[in-house]
Structure formats: structure tokens, C-alpha cells
């Protein structure tokens, strides 16, 4: 069954959607959307370094994404507004990454594949990495769910309940780095943030509890992956962007529907 490239691609897409959904909810609730971008852009630098050092792309991307995420967390609230800081770091990381790639003489790399993903080339090993990473992220978030939610709602409330919001923030940061690293092959650096945010945002109108929102986001993400790949196959369009397009269309439809039912048309 796994011999078929479409099957592997679909499984890869669904795996990323499952990891991205609960994490994406926290990214949306905590207004960290740009944070996802910064982490993802840093991954390009990680890819260049891992090719230069001849280590696995997944490991390189994850380490640099993690360093980036930790740096942002550490620098936040020290002089610059967080969006300014993220703007500086995200775009510099992307620029340094692209420059670093150009130094790699002798290695021919398809930059487009990393920027926009190459889900159709996913191997069995990639699939294991993606599902392993997704399981780790989902496990981490499920384990810390209540603590993460309490810290997101109010820091003092978390402290009074004996939790450490800084530790919970670190767990989100690590999960984000893992998700970025496993999602690079599927949707690419430029569209990872879309897979985090769009399904979560689309699920908002349908959910009455945080848990429901994460579940619905996972479903929307998985539908987008499956439908996007089918669309890419039928219309011969690039696969990663097609997945994001389906998610965006679902977001628009759900919002229009919610708006219509609220205004009683």
C-alpha cells in the first residue's frame, strides 16, 4: 500500500495536520502566529547547515528552529515589541539561510522543494519521521493540556495553581520546532504557518470548548490534506500550496456560513 506515492503523500499530509491542529489552536489563542513564521523561516538556515555538515535535514531544521524559538522567547519584552523582534529575526534567518545555501558549491539543492514542500517525494523513512514527530507533539500537548490552557488564560492563575507558565511556554516552543521540522517536506517553509493557523481559525466558529476546537481543527486539516492532494493530482497543481488553498477555502466557507446564520439571512 505504501508503495503508492499518493498514499504516502496523503498519510504525510494527515500526519502534519494532526500535529498542527492542537498546536495551531494555542498559536491562535496566544497570538503567536508570527512566531510560527519566524521558526519556519529559520528552518531554511537549518537546511543549509545540515547539507553543509552532511547531517539529516530533519535534525538540522529542528535544531535551528528550536534555537530560533528559544531566542525569540528569551528576547521578548526586552526593548522591542514582539512583532518587530519577530520581523527582524524571521526575515534575517530566511536571508541568511538563502545566502548560506548559495555557498554550498557541489551540492545541488532544489530550494523550491524546501520553500514550498515536496510532498509527492515523501519516502517511507520520511513518513516514519513525520508520524513519529506528530505523535510526539500530540502526546506532549495532551499531557500538558490543562496546564497549557491555564497558562494561556492567565499567568497568575497558573502560578496560583502551582504551575509554571514559563515551562508551559517552553513546551509549546519545542512542539513548534518539531512540527516545523516534520512539516517542511509536506508544505514547505513558507506555508507551515498556514497549516498551523488556518485549520484552527476555521474551527473557531464551530466549537464551544477548547477541546472541540482542537478536534475540529484536526478534522479540517486532514480534509484539506486529502482534498488538496486529490486536487493537485487532478489539476496538476503544486501539492503543498493546493493543501493550503483547500484549508483557506474551508475557512472562508465556514466563516460565511457562520456569518449568515448569525445575521439570520
Amino acid at each position: 500500500m505504501l508503495d503508492d506515492f499518493m498514499t504516502r503523500a496523503t498519510l504525510a499530509g494527515v500526519g502534519v495536520a494532526f500535529a498542527a491542529a492542537p498546536l495551531g489552536c494555542f498559536v491562535v489563542w496566544r497570538r503567536m502566529a508570527y512566531f510560527g513564521d519566524a521558526t519556519a523561516h529559520a528552518a531554511i538556515l537549518g537546511i543549509a547547515l545540515s547539507l553543509a555538515l552532511q547531517i539529516s535535514v530533519f535534525a538540522g531544521a529542528m535544531v535551528v528552529a528550536l534555537i530560533m524559538a528559544l531566542m525569540v522567547t528569551h528576547l521578548a519584552g526586552r526593548g522591542y515589541a514582539i512583532d518587530t523582534l519577530l520581523g527582524v529575526l524571521a526575515h534575517s534567518a530566511l536571508a541568511f539561510g538563502l545566502v548560506a545555501v548559495s555557498f554550498l558549491s557541489g551540492v545541488r539543492i532544489d530550494l523550491m522543494a524546501y520553500l514550498f514542500g515536496d510532498i509527492l517525494a515523501v519516502s517511507r523513512l520520511d513518513l516514519m519521521v513525520i508520524w513519529g514527530g506528530a505523535a510526539l507533539v500530540v502526546g506532549l500537548i495532551l499531557w500538558r493540556w490543562s496546564a497549557l490552557l491555564t497558562s494561556t488564560l492567565n499567568e497568575e492563575l497558573a502560578y496560583a495553581s502551582g504551575l509554571n507558565p514559563k515551562r508551559e511556554q517552553l513546551i509549546l516552543t519545542i512542539s513548534l520546532a518539531i512540527t516545523v521540522a516534520v512539516a517542511i517536506k509536506v508544505v514547505g517553509v513558507l506555508l507551515i504557518a498556514a497549516m498551523l493557523i488556518i485549520p484552527a481559525a476555521a474551527a473557531r466558529g464551530l466549537a464551544r470548548t477548547p477541546e472541540a476546537m482542537a478536534g475540529i481543527a484536526a478534522a479540517i486539516g486532514a480534509i484539506s490534506a486529502v482534498a488538496g492532494l486529490q486536487g493537485a493530482y487532478v489539476f496538476d497543481t503544486p501539492a503543498g500550496p493546493s493543501i493550503v488553498c483547500v484549508a483557506a477555502i474551508l475557512f472562508a466557507c465556514l466563516n460565511l456560513w457562520g456569518w449568515r446564520s448569525r445575521s439570520g439571512v
Binding site: 489563542w29 490543562s146 466549537a207 476546537m213
Partner: peptide
């Protein structure tokens, strides 16, 4: 306590937070 508008939560779920 500011609850971001993107975070849906019922009173019951909020009460069971911790």
C-alpha cells in the same frame, strides 16, 4: 482575565480548568 475571542470556552469547562 482576558479571554482571547478566538478561544471558545464554556463556564463549565472554565470551572474545570485545573
Amino acid at each position: 482575565l482576558h479571554i482571547d475571542p478566538t478561544l471558545p470556552i464554556t463556564v463549565e469547562r472554565f470551572m474545570q480548568l485545573t
